[in-house]
Design a protein around this nucleic acid. Sequence first.
DNA 1: CTTGACCCCGTACCAAGGTACGGGGTGTAG
DNA 2: CTACACCCCGTACCTTGGTACGGGGTCAAG
Lengths: 153, 153
Amino acid sequence: MKAFTVGQVARRAGVGVETVRFYERQGLLDEPERKASGYRQYGGGDVAVLRFIRRAKQLGFTLREIKALLALRLDGSATRSDVRAQAAAKLADIGAKIRDLQRMRDALSVLTAACHGDGPATGCPILEALDIPEDDGPGGDDHAPARPRRTER
Amino acid sequence: MKAFTVGQVARRAGVGVETVRFYERQGLLDEPERKASGYRQYGGGDVAVLRFIRRAKQLGFTLREIKALLALRLDGSATRSDVRAQAAAKLADIGAKIRDLQRMRDALSVLTAACHGDGPATGCPILEALDIPEDDGPGGDDHAPARPRRTER
DNA sequence: CTTGACCCCGTACCAAGGTACGGGGTGTAG
DNA sequence: CTACACCCCGTACCTTGGTACGGGGTCAAG
């Protein structure tokens, strides 16, 4: 029977010892058996779980979501469509992030293209585009947080 | 001379009062004049800076980077290419993030496509792909952190 | 002069995902 | 027996970008 210490299991999974303890505290990894000395004793399954966590993290899942996936894995009544639902949600999530970033990139590259030459930074279109002149009109309270507010004195 | 209180400047810029104080602490916003009572007094330029910060955040700049951009804006010796350099770095940064997310998305959608039917979750390709069998070979210490380590006992 | 909305300050707290520290016990090779 | 590496535990700390809290002062209207 192979039994690993926390350091061995960490090394096999490619994470740090503190991380293993952290995952245990977060409920991602079951509390292992202990030796008489109090040392944690892990088996091959624990290495698999740690690697699972690593891969899922690489796919963009949060620890909270990974915890749910691990629960599905052990839940006999869970179906594939449960797993697919998680994956689809994460795909939507990733897609939204990609679109956000693409919008940022496009806006910024337009600005960068408009900024040529080597004059003083003061007139640079990038800074100018950011530097919005003060809109002092009477309806100028755009984007104000939704909280109690008096009329401006 | 228009002088605003912190609440007024916050409302005009579309941020919270606490956020204005926070930006001041972070050095993004200069410490304003004070009235005898200690109340901060802002002018139109401060509103512009706060709006600048908002826009730059939308473009994906961190507060640290925005601080640098604000410094460039005021630095007479800064050139447009200084600004372009910042923008280019951020573009590279955003591009890298997009590619990371695209890789995640592709990997996950391949898995999702492979998981069909409605059987027990146990056999689902998504979970199986994550659940890496233990590679117990002699060279099996991949991805170990670079720190002092004894040979495995 | 009271009320209510606003302002002051410092400090604590939130999410996420760990990392580090310090004081102590264990395990084993030499 | 002595090293030395490893393990235990709890707690504090880190990053980013704020948000919340509590106790107190200020300002303008009624």
